[in-house]
């Protein structure tokens, strides 16, 4: 609209140590430093986080939902990747 439009940033918050960053939402900021601070004020004002990432929304490459089948379905028919695929006699422990 005008040159005052601030770019959009995606915000990822680590809620506590030991957990990974999770997408929390987005916000507008003129630059990375303010994006980080705005994210702190907006998404962690109730103590929801110990670490924040901000990423320009334009820098994210996402898989397309139209490619859903070729992207994700092949992974669904390889049950041998999951531990439940294997029969283990009852009573065998630590496996």
């Amino acid at each position: 609209m005008t040159n005052t439009d601030w770019p959009l940033w995606e915000v990822f918050v680590r809620s506590r140590r030991g957990l990974s960053h999770t997408h929390a939402g987005s916000l507008h900021a003129p630059d990375a430093e303010l994006a980080l601070r705005n994210a702190r004020d907006l998404y962690t004002r109730r103590g929801e986080g110990v670490s924040i990432w901000v990423v320009p929304s334009s820098a994210i490459t996402a898989s397309s939902p139209d490619e859903k089948d070729p992207f994700f379905e092949p992974a669904a028919d390889k049950p041998y990747r999951h531990p439940t695929f294997y029969d283990i006699p009852e009573g065998v422990k630590h496996l």
């Binding site: 601030w6 916000l27 507008h28 900021a29 303010l34 601070r37 705005n38 004020d41 907006l42 004002r45």
Partner: peptide, 8 residues
């Protein structure tokens, strides 16, 4: 001046 700054 901007909504983010209301929060700050």
């Amino acid at each position: 001046p901007v909504l983010e700054e209301e929060v700050a």
